[in-house]
Design a protein around this nucleic acid. Structure first.
Lengths: 203, 203, 203, 203
DNA sequence: GACTAACCGAGACGGTACGTCCTGTCTTGTC
DNA sequence: GACAAGACAGGACGTACCGTCTCGGTTAGTC
């Protein structure tokens, strides 16, 4: 007897409006920042009724998340080469990551989403599942391959290892303490690999 | 000919109101979270006029920052022991840091401040100067002492080294990927120290 | 290039809200007086958002004016009988006017509006056009009819004549010097008519 | 047990501040009108602490009233000549009254005070006692003199008579319907005097 | 080809909080 | 103790957005 929440029919959804909203959100977050980003402004910029946003997204963070995802998908998923030279492979990827985090096109929305995810568990989960974990999984796979090849200690905890690679970069990016240079990325890779090197001692 | 911004006279400031505002902010951020924390609610809870908040703080983030600072000062500044055993000293501090980050009393406001500092450069600077840098400086001093004692490679970049210690913890805390255990802290310390160990090769 | 003020679409206006606001304003002005009448209180009493008042009225005086107009319209427009007996007709109307000005239902809001119109030219104009002039015009018409019938001097200035009838009542009402009795109204009519009587002398 | 209201010692009052406040109030009411006149602005303009105003006056209307009184006293009290020619005497005074009401120096504050007195009984009483009644009493005395001399009907109600002289002018002034000309003043005097003329009939 | 159901742009609605302004009181230090 | 200065608690101001709702006007897809 109770009324259903009325889920909209996604088959009849206007692709035109969806794109306009995603684009408007990305533009505006770059112009005014996440704090001053409003649903009303997105709707106005996109030439769309507010209800069209509320119908399809639960929050402005969710809109921005989809905007960011659309942006990421254009540039392909996370690829981590396996040339056999672990150090070279890791440096390549960590340098690329540093560059991406420095690019305002990615930096601004990602920063806003990370900030917002502190208060918004649903967003935090999505961000982890769709953005963070795929990237970390690629790292883990590459490290596993290296461990199997005997390049790093068989007792190394791969999860901890990848966090030691990614954590320092993330720290600099979030806290803006120092610039994210290639030299920094290289330095992190070198120290971590030396720490994980196979040897007589245990980890 | 232009009008001055009229800075208030801090000598006549009401200490009673200042404390009440700081306490109210800390209570409320724990109850409703930063997103729903409002200046009006802080003023009401503190039994204070809104103008008394606007007179002394530029934003609610700034109020919360001072609340957090008052909280931190109660528990003393950053101390990093120098027993001569670098590994033991670092593990002790990193375990303590992990515990603090897991304590809701510190976790909630610090998380909110970090999130907010992404949109608020003034807050970001204050957070760096007053909270982050003192802690990092203590780490750096301890590492310098160890390098001078020949415990770590003379070529090691101390700044990078400390970011490799702190970064992985920060990563787990911010992104809530896995729990911040003592074992994790120990593992990070061990790997980093092995990576920094003095030896025939260069860094 | 400049932004339009964005006038709302009156076709979509909520009649329910409009009535509630008008009623609330009238109630409150009777309870607390115009000085302590606030938009916030009107909105709260009417169960309406403040913006709904700001959307349709420029000031609280304007709201009250509409309230008063709605009140007046319920009791019909200004009617001035023409029985042929000028003195009787004028006494009837002036007595009725005195009674109305003494009725708190009309007295309070009209007094508030008159007071406010001293600072608010737009309100003053509206009050003149929609309330005062229609009444004065009715008087003037009746006097013209009397002049045409030879009951008053053909040289009499009708505008001055009607102000001499209405002015003394208005004076007592505004300044609250003495009560507005029927005897007073009669006395004014008698003296004015004797002063306007046709005779050998000129006006 | 109850606290006395603490009346200040008027002997130690600063005449300098009193004058500065009165002047500032008069200036400001001319510049921004009564509605936007604030105690803070008066204090600032007068170079005076707010408390000095609150110490000596109960409301801003009361301040303005004293300002107006000081202004009036400079130009002498109400004088109504008695040359024996009643019509000439009345025309002289009513023309002077019309001129004064048209002079912004008197018009603005008097208008503000009259408006405010609608909500403020204490002000209304003071305005009546100190400003209005002295003037009306002068009129009444002159009319009594004329009645004693047989120039107007012995049965005339002098109070009504003077309200018929003053009321029409007041009506035009308050409601700004038409300009306050000398011709209008004359016309009122003539009609009233004809209406009050002694004759065979009764009043 | 009409019907109908749902999305669409638009924007009015009841609300919350903003940041500013002013009130009337209280406090501090000067004359 | 009156004064200038100004911080204080309180609260109304007018604005900006929130998220919901209602209005016509397009589109589909069904009869």
């Amino acid at each position: 007897m109770s009324e259903q929440p009325r889920t909209p029919d996604s088959a009849r959804r206007s692709e035109r409006s969806r794109r306009a909203i995603l684009d408007a959100a990305l533009e505006l977050v770059g112009e005014v920042g996440f704090g001053k980003l409003t649903i009303e402004a997105i709707a106005a910029r996109a030439g769309v009724g507010k209800q069209t946003i509320y119908r399809w997204w639960p929050s402005k963070a969710s809109v921005l998340f989809d905007s960011f995802l659309a942006l990421s998908e254009d540039s392909g998923g996370p690829v981590l080469p396996d040339t056999g030279d672990l150090e070279a492979d890791l440096k390549l990827v960590l340098r690329a990551t540093a560059d991406e985090l420095a690019d305002p096109k990615y930096d601004l929305p990602l920063r806003a989403l990370t900030a917002e995810s502190q208060h918004d568990p649903a967003l935090a989960r999505e961000l982890n599942e769709k953005v963070l974990e795929p990237q970390l999984a690629a790292f883990e796979a590459r490290l596993r391959s290296a461990r199997d090849a005997g390049r790093i200690s068989p007792r190394a905890d791969l999860r901890v290892a990848l966090e030691m690679l990614v954590g320092p970069l993330y720290h600099r990016w979030m806290l803006r303490t120092l610039p994210l240079t290639h030299a920094y990325a290289d330095s992190v890779v070198e120290t971590v690999l030396r720490g994980l090197a196979p040897g007589p001692e245990s980890v």
